[in-house]
Amino acid sequence: MRGANALLGACGLAAFLALGEAVPRLGLVDEEYFPPTSRIADALAGELSDDAFWTALGDTLTGWAIGLVIAVSAGIVAGVLISVTPYLREATASTIEFLRPIPSVALIPLAVLLYGTELRSVLLLVVYASFWQVLVQVMYGVQDVDPVAEETARSYGLGTWARVRHVLWPTALPYVMTGVRLAAAVALILAVTAELVIGAPGLGARIAVAQTSQAVPEMYALVVVTGLLGLLINVGARTVERRALAWHQSVRGEVAV
Protein backbone atom coordinates (compact mmCIF):
# COMPACT_ATOMS: atom_id res chain seq x y z
CA MET A 1 0.00 0.00 0.00
CA ARG A 2 2.81 2.38 0.94
CA GLY A 3 4.78 1.36 -2.15
CA ALA A 4 1.76 2.05 -4.33
CA ASN A 5 1.31 5.46 -2.74
CA ALA A 6 4.96 6.34 -3.30
CA LEU A 7 4.63 5.27 -6.94
CA LEU A 8 1.55 7.44 -7.41
CA GLY A 9 3.38 10.36 -5.82
CA ALA A 10 6.34 9.92 -8.16
CA CYS A 11 4.01 9.76 -11.19
CA GLY A 12 2.30 12.96 -10.06
CA LEU A 13 5.61 14.76 -9.67
CA ALA A 14 6.85 13.52 -13.07
CA ALA A 15 3.64 14.71 -14.71
CA PHE A 16 4.01 18.11 -13.06
CA LEU A 17 7.61 18.46 -14.27
CA ALA A 18 6.63 17.34 -17.76
CA LEU A 19 3.85 19.93 -17.81
CA GLY A 20 6.39 22.59 -16.76
CA GLU A 21 8.52 21.53 -19.72
CA ALA A 22 5.71 21.35 -22.29
CA VAL A 23 3.74 24.51 -21.56
CA PRO A 24 6.57 27.02 -22.34
CA ARG A 25 7.83 24.89 -25.26
CA LEU A 26 4.39 24.96 -26.87
CA GLY A 27 4.41 28.74 -26.59
CA LEU A 28 1.42 28.84 -24.22
CA VAL A 29 3.38 31.13 -21.90
CA ASP A 30 6.33 33.42 -22.50
CA GLU A 31 9.47 31.33 -22.25
CA GLU A 32 11.41 34.34 -21.04
CA TYR A 33 9.45 34.60 -17.78
CA PHE A 34 8.52 30.95 -17.44
CA PRO A 35 11.44 28.81 -18.60
CA PRO A 36 10.86 25.08 -19.20
CA THR A 37 11.81 22.56 -16.47
CA SER A 38 15.00 21.50 -18.24
CA ARG A 39 16.40 25.04 -18.27
CA ILE A 40 15.58 25.48 -14.59
CA ALA A 41 17.34 22.16 -13.90
CA ASP A 42 20.39 23.38 -15.85
CA ALA A 43 20.41 26.60 -13.85
CA LEU A 44 20.08 24.61 -10.62
CA ALA A 45 23.10 22.48 -11.58
CA GLY A 46 24.98 25.72 -12.28
CA GLU A 47 24.07 27.07 -8.86
CA LEU A 48 25.16 23.88 -7.12
CA SER A 49 28.65 24.21 -8.59
CA ASP A 50 28.92 27.86 -7.49
CA ASP A 51 30.60 28.57 -4.13
CA ALA A 52 28.61 31.78 -3.70
CA PHE A 53 25.41 29.72 -3.75
CA TRP A 54 26.63 27.54 -0.88
CA THR A 55 27.63 30.61 1.13
CA ALA A 56 24.16 32.04 0.60
CA LEU A 57 22.56 28.75 1.61
CA GLY A 58 24.75 28.70 4.74
CA ASP A 59 23.71 32.28 5.61
CA THR A 60 20.04 31.46 5.25
CA LEU A 61 20.34 28.31 7.36
CA THR A 62 22.35 30.17 10.01
CA GLY A 63 19.67 32.85 10.35
CA TRP A 64 16.97 30.19 10.38
CA ALA A 65 18.67 27.97 12.97
CA ILE A 66 19.78 30.69 15.41
CA GLY A 67 16.41 32.39 15.18
CA LEU A 68 14.56 29.12 15.71
CA VAL A 69 16.68 28.14 18.72
CA ILE A 70 16.12 31.53 20.36
CA ALA A 71 12.38 31.46 19.64
CA VAL A 72 11.93 27.88 20.86
CA SER A 73 13.91 28.37 24.08
CA ALA A 74 12.21 31.66 24.88
CA GLY A 75 8.79 30.27 23.96
CA ILE A 76 9.18 27.23 26.20
CA VAL A 77 10.53 29.13 29.20
CA ALA A 78 7.95 31.92 28.89
CA GLY A 79 5.10 29.47 28.26
CA VAL A 80 5.88 27.33 31.31
CA LEU A 81 6.42 30.34 33.58
CA ILE A 82 3.24 32.08 32.44
CA SER A 83 1.21 28.90 32.88
CA VAL A 84 2.47 27.85 36.30
CA THR A 85 2.62 31.29 37.94
CA PRO A 86 -0.73 32.22 39.46
CA TYR A 87 -2.44 35.23 37.83
CA LEU A 88 0.33 35.69 35.25
CA ARG A 89 -1.70 33.93 32.57
CA GLU A 90 -4.68 36.23 33.04
CA ALA A 91 -2.41 39.27 33.26
CA THR A 92 -0.62 38.50 29.99
CA ALA A 93 -3.46 36.98 27.92
CA SER A 94 -4.70 40.22 26.35
CA THR A 95 -1.18 41.46 25.59
CA ILE A 96 -0.30 38.18 23.92
CA GLU A 97 -3.50 38.23 21.88
CA PHE A 98 -2.60 41.75 20.75
CA LEU A 99 1.06 41.11 19.86
CA ARG A 100 0.60 37.69 18.27
CA PRO A 101 -1.36 38.70 15.14
CA ILE A 102 1.11 41.47 14.19
CA PRO A 103 2.65 40.15 10.96
CA SER A 104 6.39 39.86 11.35
CA VAL A 105 6.95 41.56 7.98
CA ALA A 106 5.38 44.71 9.42
CA LEU A 107 8.50 44.92 11.59
CA ILE A 108 10.84 45.10 8.56
CA PRO A 109 11.23 48.91 8.81
CA LEU A 110 12.09 48.57 12.49
CA ALA A 111 14.63 45.84 11.78
CA VAL A 112 16.30 47.99 9.12
CA LEU A 113 16.39 51.01 11.44
CA LEU A 114 17.93 48.98 14.24
CA TYR A 115 20.34 46.66 12.46
CA GLY A 116 20.51 47.57 8.76
CA THR A 117 21.23 44.51 6.62
CA GLU A 118 22.97 42.53 9.33
CA LEU A 119 22.07 39.01 10.41
CA ARG A 120 20.41 40.57 13.44
CA SER A 121 17.59 42.05 11.34
CA VAL A 122 16.83 38.57 9.99
CA LEU A 123 16.90 37.21 13.54
CA LEU A 124 14.51 39.88 14.80
CA LEU A 125 11.90 38.91 12.23
CA VAL A 126 12.45 35.15 12.52
CA VAL A 127 12.29 35.19 16.31
CA TYR A 128 9.23 37.41 16.43
CA ALA A 129 7.32 35.20 14.00
CA SER A 130 8.21 31.81 15.47
CA PHE A 131 8.14 32.73 19.17
CA TRP A 132 4.33 32.96 19.27
CA GLN A 133 3.90 29.57 17.59
CA VAL A 134 5.87 27.92 20.37
CA LEU A 135 4.49 30.01 23.23
CA VAL A 136 0.87 29.35 22.42
CA GLN A 137 1.41 25.59 22.02
CA VAL A 138 3.36 25.36 25.29
CA MET A 139 0.56 27.16 27.10
CA TYR A 140 -2.01 24.70 25.71
CA GLY A 141 0.25 21.79 26.64
CA VAL A 142 0.70 22.87 30.24
CA GLN A 143 -3.07 23.14 30.61
CA ASP A 144 -3.35 19.50 29.61
CA VAL A 145 -1.69 18.06 32.74
CA ASP A 146 -3.86 15.28 34.15
CA PRO A 147 -4.98 16.06 37.73
CA VAL A 148 -4.57 12.38 38.70
CA ALA A 149 -0.98 12.35 37.43
CA GLU A 150 -0.34 15.60 39.29
CA GLU A 151 -1.80 14.21 42.53
CA THR A 152 0.19 11.01 42.14
CA ALA A 153 3.38 13.03 41.81
CA ARG A 154 2.50 15.17 44.82
CA SER A 155 1.59 12.17 46.97
CA TYR A 156 5.01 10.64 46.23
CA GLY A 157 6.70 13.78 47.46
CA LEU A 158 7.81 15.20 44.08
CA GLY A 159 8.65 18.87 44.53
CA THR A 160 7.76 21.67 42.13
CA TRP A 161 10.84 21.23 39.95
CA ALA A 162 10.48 17.43 39.83
CA ARG A 163 6.82 17.80 38.84
CA VAL A 164 7.72 20.25 36.08
CA ARG A 165 10.35 17.85 34.79
CA HIS A 166 8.56 14.52 35.13
CA VAL A 167 4.89 15.41 34.71
CA LEU A 168 4.38 18.83 33.16
CA TRP A 169 7.14 18.64 30.56
CA PRO A 170 6.27 15.19 29.13
CA THR A 171 2.60 16.18 29.05
CA ALA A 172 3.39 19.39 27.18
CA LEU A 173 5.94 17.76 24.87
CA PRO A 174 3.50 16.76 22.07
CA TYR A 175 2.27 20.37 21.97
CA VAL A 176 5.83 21.69 22.08
CA MET A 177 6.72 19.47 19.13
CA THR A 178 3.80 20.81 17.11
CA GLY A 179 4.88 24.34 18.03
CA VAL A 180 8.46 23.67 16.97
CA ARG A 181 7.36 22.17 13.65
CA LEU A 182 5.18 25.20 12.87
CA ALA A 183 7.91 27.56 14.07
CA ALA A 184 10.54 25.86 11.88
CA ALA A 185 8.40 26.43 8.78
CA VAL A 186 7.57 30.02 9.68
CA ALA A 187 11.21 30.75 10.51
CA LEU A 188 12.30 29.70 7.00
CA ILE A 189 9.65 31.88 5.39
CA LEU A 190 10.75 34.87 7.45
CA ALA A 191 14.46 34.26 6.89
CA VAL A 192 14.00 34.26 3.10
CA THR A 193 11.60 37.23 3.23
CA ALA A 194 14.04 39.29 5.29
CA GLU A 195 16.89 38.55 2.90
CA LEU A 196 14.72 39.32 -0.12
CA VAL A 197 13.33 42.60 1.17
CA ILE A 198 16.13 43.92 3.38
CA GLY A 199 19.01 42.48 1.36
CA ALA A 200 20.68 40.63 4.22
CA PRO A 201 23.00 37.97 2.75
CA GLY A 202 21.37 34.63 1.92
CA LEU A 203 19.21 32.81 -0.61
CA GLY A 204 16.61 35.59 -0.57
CA ALA A 205 19.17 38.21 -1.49
CA ARG A 206 20.46 35.91 -4.25
CA ILE A 207 16.93 35.57 -5.64
CA ALA A 208 16.62 39.37 -5.70
CA VAL A 209 19.95 39.67 -7.52
CA ALA A 210 18.91 37.01 -10.07
CA GLN A 211 15.66 38.88 -10.65
CA THR A 212 17.27 42.29 -11.20
CA SER A 213 19.91 40.82 -13.53
CA GLN A 214 17.24 39.08 -15.64
CA ALA A 215 18.64 35.62 -14.78
CA VAL A 216 15.17 34.10 -14.78
CA PRO A 217 16.07 30.35 -14.81
CA GLU A 218 18.51 30.96 -11.90
CA MET A 219 15.77 32.77 -10.02
CA TYR A 220 13.45 29.75 -10.43
CA ALA A 221 16.27 27.40 -9.44
CA LEU A 222 16.73 29.31 -6.19
CA VAL A 223 13.00 29.28 -5.53
CA VAL A 224 13.07 25.50 -5.99
CA VAL A 225 15.91 25.30 -3.45
CA THR A 226 13.89 27.23 -0.84
CA GLY A 227 10.99 24.87 -1.47
CA LEU A 228 13.21 21.82 -0.99
CA LEU A 229 14.55 23.33 2.23
CA GLY A 230 11.04 23.73 3.57
CA LEU A 231 10.27 20.13 2.66
CA LEU A 232 13.42 18.82 4.38
CA ILE A 233 12.73 20.86 7.50
CA ASN A 234 9.21 19.47 7.78
CA VAL A 235 10.33 15.88 7.24
CA GLY A 236 13.12 16.34 9.80
CA ALA A 237 10.77 17.85 12.36
CA ARG A 238 8.30 15.01 11.90
CA THR A 239 11.02 12.41 12.38
CA VAL A 240 12.18 14.04 15.61
CA GLU A 241 8.55 14.23 16.75
CA ARG A 242 7.92 10.54 16.09
CA ARG A 243 11.04 9.53 18.02
CA ALA A 244 10.45 11.77 21.00
CA LEU A 245 6.79 10.83 21.25
CA ALA A 246 6.97 7.08 20.67
CA TRP A 247 4.91 6.65 23.85
CA HIS A 248 2.22 9.09 22.80
CA GLN A 249 -1.19 7.99 21.58
CA SER A 250 -0.86 9.90 18.31
CA VAL A 251 2.30 7.96 17.42
CA ARG A 252 1.83 4.56 19.04
CA GLY A 253 -1.68 4.08 17.66
CA GLU A 254 -4.03 1.57 19.23
CA VAL A 255 -2.31 -1.16 21.19
CA ALA A 256 -3.96 -4.54 21.37
CA VAL A 257 -3.81 -5.74 24.98
Binding site: V148, A149, T152, Y156, A162, P170
Partner: peptide
Protein backbone atom coordinates in the same frame (compact mmCIF):
# COMPACT_ATOMS: atom_id res chain seq x y z
CA UNK B 1 2.63 7.05 52.98
CA UNK B 2 1.79 5.86 49.47
CA UNK B 3 -1.48 6.17 47.58
CA UNK B 4 -2.90 3.80 44.96
CA UNK B 5 -5.49 5.60 42.85
CA UNK B 6 -8.50 4.16 41.11
CA UNK B 7 -7.53 5.55 37.70
CA UNK B 8 -4.35 3.54 37.12
CA UNK B 9 -4.25 4.60 33.47
CA UNK B 10 -3.88 8.23 34.48
CA UNK B 11 -1.83 7.65 37.60
CA UNK B 12 0.95 5.79 35.77
CA UNK B 13 3.00 7.95 33.44
CA UNK B 14 2.67 6.75 29.83
CA UNK B 15 6.02 8.30 28.88
CA UNK B 16 7.90 6.07 31.31
CA UNK B 17 8.48 2.36 31.20
CA UNK B 18 7.17 0.24 34.06
CA UNK B 19 10.59 0.19 35.74
CA UNK B 20 10.93 3.97 35.53
CA UNK B 21 7.42 4.50 36.87
CA UNK B 22 8.23 2.41 39.93
CA UNK B 23 11.62 4.04 40.36
CA UNK B 24 10.63 7.70 40.04
CA UNK B 25 9.39 8.19 43.64
CA UNK B 26 12.56 6.50 44.92
CA UNK B 27 14.71 9.06 43.14
CA UNK B 28 12.98 11.73 45.18
Amino acid sequence: MAVVFQEYGRSLFPWMRVRENVELPLKQ
